[in-house]
């Protein structure tokens, strides 16, 4: 049985990272009632594990670490009227009556406003009866349903991982995505290995190569399928060149070696077809980010368009190079709500 709505808010912001915090702050300043929900135990999102600098050059004209950048927004959120729920996950979003436009002819766009004077804007009672939007939340307070007018989805992105690449071989321990490696090291102070191969030479891979090197770990090689490293020129200079990270271009990993813990990868040169082993005790994958829009499933209209009350922002809208632009765009969105 479904549980009833027990709470109402004007704006529901899902995700307490850079995008969610900026959108929530702007909406709150605009006089809206805002509920900000964060899955993790603390606000900050992916920024919490970014111990490197390069954040805030545009937003604050300062060179901050990710944590410092996040801290500025966290303290602003904490000083505002935004209701914050951490350790809380939105399980689903729904719109009552959304699939029943024939049964409820007063739904948006039906064109029958005269016959059914309850179309949007004409009165609260009817709208909330027929097109109530709600979210199911799970957190320390329990399982509960919150209704809202507008929802900002700021759930960031997830990492492509080895599983999606279809690599052959065993599945030993010692394989991490760059984000997991960063989380374990940056937030947990844990050591993931000694001799590391990084698959993918984009920004994330390069930043992690630098972080591993600074932590005293050996980056055996970065493996990149293109004929040049990807990412920002800044990172190529400050990570690859400054730390002399060996990069193997036009090459892919097409096999995993080792039982128990990984002992190496099978590399394949795309030009010559030559396959050879590279010994390592850790493989870190930095092979792309995928906007996480799991909560949108089932909400798309027939033409694939999302409902007008659902707003994507930050990396779940599109993957951004710089957090400063995430904050700027999210703030603009928050003001419009």
């Amino acid at each position: 049985m479904k549980i009833p709505v027990t709470e109402k808010t004007e704006i529901l912001v899902i995700g307490g990272g850079a995008a969610g915090m900026a959108a929530a702050l702007a909406a709150c300043r605009n006089g809206k009632q805002v509920l900000l929900v964060e899955h993790d135990g603390e606000l900050g999102g992916i920024l919490r594990q970014c111990v490197h600098r390069g954040f805030g050059l545009a937003a604050f004209r300062e060179d901050l670490t990710g944590r410092e950048y996040a801290a500025r927004f966290v303290s602003a959120v904490r000083g505002s009227d935004i209701t914050v729920r951490t350790g809380t996950t939105v399980l689903s979003l729904e719109e009552e009556g959304s699939g029943d436009e024939d049964a409820f002819p007063c739904a948006e766009g039906s064109g029958d406003e005269d016959a059914f004077p309850c179309a949007e804007g004409s009165g609260d009672g009817c709208i909330s009866r027929f097109t109530e939007r709600s979210a199911l939340l799970s957190g320390p307070e329990g399982l509960y349903r919150v209704s809202f007018d507008q929802c900002v989805l700021a759930t960031g992105c997830r990492e492509r991982n080895l599983g999606s690449l279809g690599l052959a071989g065993t599945r030993p321990a010692g394989i991490f995505t760059a984000g997991t490696a960063q989380q374990l090291m940056g937030r947990g102070g844990l050591c993931i290995g000694r001799r590391i191969v990084i698959l993918g030479c984009g920004d994330f891979g390069m930043i992690m190569a630098r972080q591993f090197t600074l932590a005293g770990l050996e980056v055996v090689a970065m493996i990149e399928k293109m004929d040049h490293p990807g990412g920002l020129a800044r990172n190529r200079k400050e990570c690859l060149e400054a730390f002399r990270i060996p990069v193997i271009l036009r090459t892919v990993v097409d096999g995993i070696l080792g039982e128990g813990r990984i002992t190496g990868v099978m590399a394949r040169d795309l030009q010559t077809g030559r396959r050879y082993e590279i010994a390592c005790d850790t493989l870190v994958t930095a092979v792309g980010l995928i906007p996480d829009r799991t909560l949108c499933r089932g909400l798309e209209r027939a033409d694939g368009v999302l409902p007008s009350w659902l707003h994507l922002c930050g990396n779940c809208e599109s993957v951004h190079d710089l957090v400063d632009s995430v904050s700027r765009e999210a703030e603009a969105l928050g003001r419009r709500l």
Binding site: G87, T89, L136, G142
Partner: peptide, 18 residues
């Protein structure tokens, strides 16, 4: 079902933490 799930969480909040 949602009501059963809510009951589980009310008995042990760890089940609320995804």
């Amino acid at each position: 079902p949602e009501d059963a799930r809510a009951g589980v969480i009310s008995r042990d909040p760890d089940y609320g933490r995804i």
